[in-house]
């Protein structure tokens, strides 16, 4: 399992060049449109999102309901268990989609948490600079040296599995990368004319950060978000493997895949369906992320 937030180390270098306002987005869109893999992936993600939201209503079963007459059966049209059932007779189609909701939600919320902390921390350090910057970045360095996954495991083991805790724990680890990237960007941005102009007009520091620095960081952030979501989903599945995931009868892709992996020979459908959903989603996010980076990187044209 990777340490979350570690997949985008090159973003710092990639965005060192100037960001050119709106035209950048138009250019980027044109590049991205030509990247078939990324476009297809984006469509798949959208489809997946719609499916996990409305899908569970399409089945006559609920995610917690035991069908005592159909325990551990393979995909079967007659009983409307189109993905089969698990060892407790619960419909796998509904559970897979329900698990998708949880996994995607964990991915998005945890990423947002790290985004908010990371952007405010990084932008502040980068903009204020000097001694404050030095101290703030020193703290980040210290935190970097922590074996964080170990702390997450300890937290989960000791204080039970609370879905909020999962969000916060994963988000709290991930913000470090974001803070570093944003700080680097801010440092280069603040020497730009429009920032200096705003300063000269006496706009407050907070407003400069909010109005000028943050919007110009959107490119990095977009890449970061698409690459972090799949990592967070993987971290969640890792916690599920250790038995520290979400609470039954709720489920997640990680929990389903872990269950399925234990029965890959007896009941392969229990592994295959959730694993296909999980792997497809992760693949797609990574492709979109890579595509976005290529598109937003001015050097790439």
């Amino acid at each position: 399992m990777m340490r979350p937030g570690m997949g985008v180390p090159s973003a710092e270098g990639t965005f060192a060049t100037e960001v050119k306002g709106r035209s950048l987005w138009v250019d980027a869109w044109n590049v991205l449109r030509k990247n078939r893999a990324a476009m297809l992936s984006a469509c798949l993600i959208a489809f997946m999102a719609v499916l996990v939201v409305i899908g569970p209503w399409l089945s006559p079963y609920t995610y917690a309901q035991t069908d005592w007459d159909n325990i551990s059966i393979g995909p079967d049209w007659a009983s409307r268990h189109i993905f089969g059932t698990d060892a407790l007779g619960r419909d796998l189609f509904v559970r897979t989609l329900h698990g998708g909701r949880i996994s995607l939600m964990i991915g998005i919320v945890a990423t947002l948490v790290s985004l908010i902390i990371g952007i405010s921390y990084g932008a502040t350090a980068g903009y204020l600079g000097g001694r404050v910057d030095h101290v703030m970045m020193r703290i980040v360095d210290i935190l970097y040296a922590m074996p964080f996954m170990f702390f997450v495991i300890l937290l989960m083991v000791f204080f039970g599995r609370n879905i909020i805790l999962i969000f916060v724990a994963i988000g709290a680890i991930n913000w470090l990368d974001m803070a570093r990237i944003v700080r680097g960007q801010t440092l280069s941005l603040k020497r730009k004319e429009f920032v200096e102009a705003a300063e000269a007009q006496g706009v407050s520091t907070f407003n400069i950060i909010r109005r000028h620095i943050v919007p110009n960081l959107l490119g990095v952030v977009a890449v970061y978000v698409t690459l972090t979501i799949p990592q967070v989903i993987l971290v969640e599945s890792f916690l599920s493997f250790l038995g520290l995931g979400v609470q039954e009868p709720m489920t997640s892709w990680g929990a389903l895949v872990n269950e399925g992996a234990q029965e890959m020979e007896t009941a392969p459908w229990m592994l295959v369906f959730p694993a296909v959903f999980l792997a497809t989603t992760l693949f797609c996010f990574n492709f979109v992320g890579d595509g976005l980076r290529d598109a937003l990187d001015p050097k790439d044209r």
């Binding site: 917690a64 035991t66 060892a87 000791f158 599995r161 609470q247 039954e248 009868p249 234990q262």
Partner: peptide
């Protein structure tokens, strides 16, 4: 633990079907 989880889900389902009891499962290490 896998086994305890499975049994708890099954029993809560039985209690629900027979008596209509609403159960919440809590697992702790």
């Amino acid at each position: 633990h896998e086994n305890h989880r499975t049994i708890a889900v099954a029993i809560s389902s039985m209690w629900n079907e027979v008596l209509g009891i609403q159960t919440e499962l809590v697992n702790e290490e």
